[in-house]
Amino acid sequence: MTVISLEHIRFGYPGFPPVLSDVSVRLGKDEILCIIGPSGCGKTSLLNIAGGFTPPEGGRLVFQEMINPQPGRKRIMVFQDSHQLFPWLTVRRNVAFPSLPGEEDSSDRLLRLVGLSESAEMYPSQLSGGMKQRAVIARAMTPRPEILLLDEPFTALDAPTRRELQNMLLDLRLEFSVSMMFVTHDIREAVYLADRLLIMTPGGTREMAISLSRERDEFSDEFVKIEREVYKLISAGRS
């Protein structure tokens, strides 16, 4: 079942070659689609269009039978910005920020799930980078979105913290049945998380299903083989 579809999307900036020309992609229910490609290939632009933050120049976005809908609570975007939490609110109140009246209790459960119960009364300035991203993702889950749109959310984190947060995302997907579009330029991260990849290069886009089981070992031959294949596709698309 498709939860969101981007059809024949075109987008660009005046006076420059188009960033996106005729890109089509669908996101299935509970699916994690990782969008990967070199810098400047239009990954973030595509995510912004999916979130409703940027209107496409051509083509259409279809979500819940609406064409090119405005941003809303069912498609939450985690931006590529390290200061997304509101500094004047504690972690608990940041996570509860999107709650509608009567929904505040769910923030406690989310804090538990992301491992921040002990830090709930701290302010964002007192948190580490990894803790901040946990809080950002917990807040994004508060309105129970159908889709989470993540723009390189773990780029600034060290490798072990990234892995912890990647596993946390996988747990949240199971717990809340949420579909995800995840932009990254890290091939290993993409292969670890994705059910399917959208490889974007200046030469065009290409989809690739990841045939690995959910328990993935990044040092296994199969994993490394897929990593290498993706690398080759990106390199070929650039030249």
Binding site: G51, F53, Q70, P71, G72, R73, R75, I76, M77, F79, D81, H83, Q84, F86, F97, P98, P143
Partner: peptide, 11 residues
Amino acid sequence: PAVYRRIGSNY
């Protein structure tokens, strides 16, 4: 910050 405005419209 512009990101706060986008977060506001997202929620």
